[in-house]
Every structure is written in structure tokens, then in C-alpha cells.
């Protein structure tokens, strides 16, 4: 981005890519606009004055819609998107391949298997409250399995991806089997989850997800530099003093955790993790903290927009946001593949 300035505060000093951060802020503003639109539009559309009034009085009818229905749901979508985008960015760095995503490591498939199993066998007795836990657990277990299977005195990106795909196929077969053998109502709710939806998100969901996301961010912070070095060739990385295997394992587990919690609350919204980092890279070519922030912002914006579209486009229906994520992602993805192939 050319223009870099040095920020000094006492003994703390950093080089800040000024222009890059300006773009991030601009993107953030766009996302805020989507947020506002998402609050105002819906089955009961609110005009600007109504909207302001509702904002001030949470107990009125419109206020209730705003504060208890739309805001938590939108925020949940934003958090899910942000976490998936961050996870996708990390994985694409570590795998050295722009087509990697939380799907390719079996994260989504693992979460789906345990979540659907939970819905089919336990939900009747225990209630659905623990489903996010089941999904997150499934995601982590799947990644651990993949790493274990790919470990032969260390892992390589190729082995990891292949194992991930193999395990994903196996797990999705198991999921299908559970779906086929369970009653239709379970199947339906499981399918909505599989497509990815933030319908009916409430404040406690938002709180939990925000807390998990925050913890993951704090854990990630010291290792961001290593993630920036991950695309280097193994030999070169060892040469400049990176513990390659250790770093790779750590970053993958972190990414899996992020995707796991996102999927746990938002359902298997596959394409955010693949597409958002690309959009970010298109907007900011230079890898760095600003690019990560951009990926997070783009991911949040994408899911919010998809959720909004799901609510608005076919009025009586409330379509799952995952459908629109896929619809936005497809043309982009195809374009990407064509460009890469050249």
C-alpha cells in the first residue's frame, strides 16, 4: 500500500499501513450500513422516525422487534461470518492454497455429524440447548482425527487436505444415514441447520458466541506473525527459525476452533470461509494485520447481507442465510477458479 507510517507511543512503536487501514474502515462503514438496513427492513418495515423511536424505547412493539428479534439475529450472523472468515484466512495461509476452507479439513462435516446425531438421538430428552457444544466438539474431533491420520513424522498440506476430504466424505455419509433413519421432523430441522441459518438467534446465543470469539482472538493474537510466514516453503521457514510443524498444528487447531464455534451457532454456512478471505485479498493485496481485519469485516458483512436477503426476497418465507451465501459465493468462486487456471 506504499504509505506506511510509524506509530509511537512511549516505548511502543509499530509500522502502520495507513491506506490499508483506511480501506478497512471504509469497509466497516459499509458493513454498518448493512447492519442498519437489516434492523430497519423485514416483515414490518420501519421508517426512519419510527426506527429512531423504537431504538429509544425497547419496550414498545417496534422496539421489541428491533431489540429482541432483529438485533440479536443480525449480530449472530455477523459474528458467525467473522469467525468463519478468519478461520478461512488462516487455513488458506497454512495450506498455501487459496481454495482451502474450513470444509476441506473436515471441520464442517465433523460438526454436522455430531449436531445431527444430537438432534436425532438426544434432543428429545435433553432439549436443543446443548447442540452448539456438540457441534463444536465434532469440529475439533474431526480436525484432530485428520491431523492424526496425516501425521507421519510431521504433516504436509497435501496430506492434510486429502485426509480432510476423505474424512469429510465418510462423516457426511454417516450424517446422511442418521438423517435417513430418523423421523421427518428431525430431518427437516437438521436440514435447515445444515444449510446454515441464524433464524431465531437470541441474546444469550450472541453472548456465548461473542465470548468464544473473543477468547479465540486473544489466543490468536501472538501467533499472527507466524501465520504470515506460513506460506513460505518448509525449508526456508525452518531456515529463518520457524518451528514449522508446531506452528502448523497450532494454527490449524485455532482455525478449527474458530470455525467450530461459528458453525455451532450458525449452522454449516460453508462458503463464507472460502470466499471472504478472497474478497479481502482482492481489496488489500498486501498480507498483514489489515488484511485479516478486512477478511473479518467482509465475512461479517456477507452473512448479514445473506440473512437480510433471505428475509426480504420471498416475503412469507424466511429462507436460510446459507442459501444466499452459496448464491453469492458461486459466481465469485467460479471466476476465481478460471483466473487461477490461467
Amino acid at each position: 500500500m506504499g504509505e506506511a507510517r510509524v506509530l509511537r507511543l512511549g516505548r511502543f512503536s509499530r509500522v502502520v499501513a495507513w491506506r490499508a487501514w483506511c480501506r478497512v474502515v471504509a469497509a466497516l462503514l459499509v458493513v454498518l450500513l448493512i447492519l442498519l438496513a437489516s434492523l430497519a427492513l423485514g416483515e414490518a418495515a420501519l421508517s426512519a422516525p419510527q426506527w429512531l423511536a423504537a431504538l429509544r424505547s425497547p419496550d414498545s412493539g417496534a422496539g421489541l422487534i428491533l431489540w429482541q428479534l432483529r438485533l440479536p439475529r443480525t449480530l449472530l450472523g455477523a459474528l458467525v461470518g467473522a469467525a468463519l472468515a478468519l478461520s478461512g484466512w488462516l487455513l488458506q495461509q497454512v495450506m498455501r492454497n487459496p481454495l482451502a476452507s474450513p470444509d476441506t479439513l473436515g471441520v464442517t462435516a465433523g460438526a454436522a455429524t455430531l449436531a445431527v446425531g444430537y438432534l436425532a438421538f438426544l434432543a428429545a430428552d435433553v432439549g436443543t440447548a446443548w447442540m452448539p457444544l456438540a457441534a463444536a466438539l465434532g469440529a475439533l474431533l474431526a480436525v484432530l482425527l485428520v491431523m492424526l491420520a496425516a501425521w507421519r513424522g510431521g504433516t504436509t498440506p497435501l496430506r492434510l487436505v486429502l485426509m480432510g476430504i476423505g474424512l469429510s466424505t465418510l462423516l457426511s455419509a454417516v450424517t446422511t444415514f442418521v438423517l435417513v433413519s430418523s423421523p421427518l421432523t428431525t430431518t427437516l430441522s437438521a436440514y435447515v441447520w445444515l444449510t446454515g441459518s441464524v433464524y431465531g438467534g437470541n441474546w444469550s446465543d450472541v453472548g456465548w458466541l461473542a465470548a468464544c470469539f473473543g477468547v479465540a482472538l486473544v489466543v490468536l493474537m501472538p501467533w499472527v506473525r507466524l501465520a504470515l510466514l506460513a506460506p513460505l516453503d518448509d525449508g526456508l521457514a525452518v531456515g529463518i527459525g520457524v518451528r514449522v510443524q508446531w506452528t502448523r498444528t497450532l494454527l490449524i487447531l485455532l482455525a478449527a476452533g474458530l470455525a467450530g464455534i461459528a458453525v455451532a451457532w450458525g449452522g454449516a454456512m460453508a462458503f463464507v470461509g472460502l470466499v471472504a478471505p478472497h474478497v479481502a485479498r482482492r481489496l488489500l493485496r498486501q498480507p498483514g494485520a489489515a488484511q485479516i481485519a478486512m477478511a473479518v469485516v467482509v465475512g461479517a458483512g456477507m452473512t448479514m447481507a445473506a440473512d437480510l436477503a433471505g428475509r426480504l426476497l420471498f416475503p412469507p418465507l424466511d429462507l436460510p442465510a446459507g442459501l444466499f451465501v452459496a448464491a453469492i459465493g458461486t459466481p465469485f468462486f467460479l471466476g476465481l477458479m478460471m483466473k487461477q487456471a490461467r
Partner: peptide, 22 residues
């Protein structure tokens, strides 16, 4: 790359099939 592209492609098709079924 080929395998990843294929996997992403099939994930995409599956996502759409699922959505239609919903």
C-alpha cells in the same frame, strides 16, 4: 489444486441441493 477445486465444487453443489430441499 485439482482435488481442492473438485472438493469445493462438490461442496457448492451439495449446498445448493440442500438449500433446495429446505
Amino acid at each position: 489444486r485439482l482435488i481442492l477445486a473438485g472438493a469445493a465444487l462438490s461442496a457448492l453443489f451439495h449446498a445448493f441441493s440442500q438449500a433446495l430441499l429446505v
